[in-house]
Design a protein around this nucleic acid. Structure first.
Lengths: 330, 330
DNA sequence: ATGAAAGCGCTAACAC
DNA sequence: GTGTTAGCGCTTTCAT
């Protein structure tokens, strides 16, 4: 490559990196040679000496619509930089997630975005000492890394206020049963705590009914069946996620109960499906695209040298659809 | 690292790669040092000389449930190897996909899985000359790379036979309007052609009604509205994908038509949502997990040296749910 | 069976 | 403003 342009390797390197100390003529000559040869610098070689120009994203699975929104924002933000986002699946077990995280580190990524990681604060801090790190979806404010969350307290309050304003008081909640250790920073815990607090604040402490399963469709299904078996049964169910709400709807359908006439249902996340007319789920919207874009910005800033931590919170909004109504209207 | 174990770098390298010519004592010593130091080889440095131990997967977006299945199979297959799968989003435009593909190549991946790529055969062949490549979801049999497809002819026949057996003859179809150039290898084209062929074979040539929009929910919505505006309107709609079928359901809902009493709807892909009781979509199941596992196997084989091309076809099956019934039953 | 040495393709520091 | 040089952390070849 350098030979073809009749210049030194260093000159080529400088042109590619837009480094200073290159004459226009030199730049032009190198540019032409690059085009003629279709030359592309090898990321591995660059990584060995400097940067890999790669942002690694760790997520449990792909296939989750909300994650897709995050990626849209991230890619959009990185588009103007020289950085590329690569993704890796961590799975749902500690061990597989660890392996995936190690794989990113081995590949010398310049920044890491952890989406709702299983790994705890201490371990993330260890990684963050070496590599700029942003955690999305964990309510933890470490000085060692940045975080981005939706304000789950506000979102949950929106849900509860909506239901209570409609006249509900026997409201059930389905949450995600996670390990206790670091649960305080976990989203399901915050949504559940807010649910309980609002219930108490309104004098409905006796009506509190929380079932801990998971945020999956299956978890919602099981949770709803459990809630329905109680007597009297709730007039509304606040599922901790849209996924779980889908399971709730399935269980209600199976039980021959109609929504919202017999029972109101609320989700959280505003996945694309919630908007479908056959579902029409009242839910909380958190702007994943904005969160992803912010993640990209924070990572680029850290790569450029910022060391102080930034903790960003997105304000959610309630989207009211046809799955909620006043109780006993059917 | 080598110093800590009191051996040469070459010895460490051999132990890590399970190369021959290492005594048990040496292996033991190196292993212990690795554990003590928590040593991990840098992929970038390895890539420069040998392999990156990385499989790159290019897909349009994450967030597509079927792609998640493919990844599950791929990761499962690679779990027993030293290879890691990383994903990159190509987006829906030629240009962004090209950029993503280049990014994988720059990162020296050892193998590439292209999921329903926009890029055409010639360009893929160029890549495949350098890097083992598997294409999933394109009906093209190149001698230069492997391919994995669902047998879309069989799947589409299953759909049509089902509808015709129920008594439908005015069946509409919604397809994906792609560039004509290389359309022959594209899935939507094959599904549409099979639809037309079966219609003709049964003497329903006059009833053929194809609307070309896209395989998205919006595309299905628009397509359905177009089909409903015709007179007489179809008694059944075969949407080319579940996504599109969701849009069809939305349009029917809006038009006050009930499914399946007024009109039957069939999708394709058996995404998780199709199974939800509020949707209950009759659709075609293609085993994404099997396809992903096969992709991993083919890539590993190619990395090990296979040069002849393998073309693998998965046999789909029909999943009948409540969105189809005999015509005029309502 | 083991180690010394060369070199993969870049970047950074320095000399000119 | 440009070229030369050293070296990033591995793998590979070749002595020993």
């Amino acid at each position: 490559m350098a030979k073809h342009a009749g210049v030194s390797k260093a000159a080529v390197s400088k042109v590619i990196r837009n480094d200073y100390g290159v004459s226009d003529a030199m730049r032009e000559r190198v540019r032409r040679a690059i085009d003629e040869l279709g030359y592309r610098p090898q990321a591995a070689a660059r990584a060995l000496r400097g940067r890999a120009f790669t942002i690694g994203v760790l997520m449990r699975h792909i296939g989750i619509p909300f994650y897709a929104e995050i990626m849209t924002g991230l890619v959009d933000q990185l588009a103007e930089s020289d950085y590329q986002a690569i993704m890796i699946q961590g799975g749902t077990r500690d061990k597989t997630e660890k392996r995936a995280l190690d794989a990113l580190i081995d590949r010398q990524v310049d920044g890491i975005l952890l989406i709702a990681p299983l790994v705890g604060r201490t371990q993330v801090e260890q990684v963050a000492r070496e590599i700029p790190t942003v955690v999305l979806g964990r309510h933890v404010r470490s000085p060692a890394y940045d975080s981005i969350v939706d304000d789950d307290r506000v979102g949950s309050e929106l849900v509860m206020d909506h239901l209570i304003a409609l006249g509900h008081r026997r409201i059930g909640h389905i949450t995600f049963n996670q390990e206790q250790g670091r649960a305080a920073e976990h989203v399901p815990r915050i949504r559940a705590e807010t649910y309980e607090r609002v219930m108490r604040d309104h004098g409905f402490a006796d009506e509190i009914a929380v079932v801990a399963t998971s945020y999956s469709e299956e978890g919602g299904y099981d949770g709803a069946r459990e809630l329905l078996s109680r007597s009297p049964r709730p007039t509304a169910i606040f599922a901790g996620s849209d996924e779980a709400a889908l399971g709730v709807l399935a269980a209600l359908h199976e039980a021959g109960l109609s929504v919202p006439d017999d029972i109101s249902v609320v989700g959280y996340d505003n996945t694309r499906l919630a908007a479908h007319p056959n579902i029409a789920l009242t839910t909380v919207n958190q702007d994943g695209v904005v969160m992803g874009r912010m993640a990209g910005r924070l990572l680029l800033e850290r790569i450029e040298g910022r060391t102080s931590a930034v903790h960003f919170s997105v304000v959610p909004s309630l989207v009211v659809r046809r799955s909620t109504a006043a109780p006993g209207s059917g």
